[in-house]
């Protein structure tokens, strides 16, 4: 026996709003079809159970646990962010250093690397010596107040930069990177 559209009508009577003709057809079909009769009875029971079952409330203290959980999860998230940030920085520096080293080894011989390193070292030493000479001359030529102002400016800049760096590190460790 064909159970369509009766099966659909039985299962969605409350939503479909059957016409009087459809209701009569369904009734006639149900009188002759034990399978649809069984379906109709079973669905009536199930639907009744679904409609009568109330919402289940959350257990007592749910909101407090959610709030506590939020604090813990945010802390954990920040720690993870910090770890990721430092790990990324370390990996970036390591990879860059490795790439530079590999590049040097590929394109230069060990002797050339040594010579270049010594050359750079010598140039740095020379530069520092030149700076020292310039400063000595400046001290003798310029009025005594100017070298003092220069030293104060250099130290001041370093202090401000250190302070900004400390603040950034503190912010990262407390609030995370973003």
């Amino acid at each position: 026996m064909n159970h369509e559209p009766f099966e659909t009508w039985i299962l969605s009577q409350k939503e479909e709003n059957l016409t009087p003709q459809q209701q009569t057809d369904l009734q006639e079909h149900l009188e002759d079809c034990p399978i649809c009769q069984q379906l109709d009875t079973s669905w009536a029971n199930v639907e009744n159970l679904l409609i009568c079952s109330p919402m289940v409330s959350a257990p007592l203290g749910f909101t407090q646990r959610a709030q506590d959980g939020l604090v813990k999860r945010r802390q954990r998230e920040h720690q993870l962010q910090i770890r990721r940030f430092f790990l990324f920085t370390f990996v970036f520096l390591a990879v860059t250093s490795l790439a530079l080293t590999a590049g040097m080894i590929l394109f230069l011989s060990p002797l050339e690397i040594l010579v270049n390193a010594m050359h750079i070292f010598a140039r740095c030493a020379l530069f520092l010596q030149q700076v020292e000479n310039v400063l000595r001359i400046a001290v003798t030529i310029l009025p005594p107040i100017i070298p003092l102002a220069l030293i104060t400016a250099i130290f001041g800049t370093f202090t401000i930069l250190s302070f900004v760096w400390s603040l950034a590190m503190m912010r990262i460790s407390v609030k995370g990177v973003l």
Binding site: V56, S57, A58, P59, F62, A66
Partner: peptide, 14 residues
């Protein structure tokens, strides 16, 4: 956040 949880905890938990 706590106020929102309080308002919507029942439907979500259900």
């Amino acid at each position: 956040f706590a106020r929102l949880v309080e308002a919507y905890q029942t439907p979500v938990y259900n």
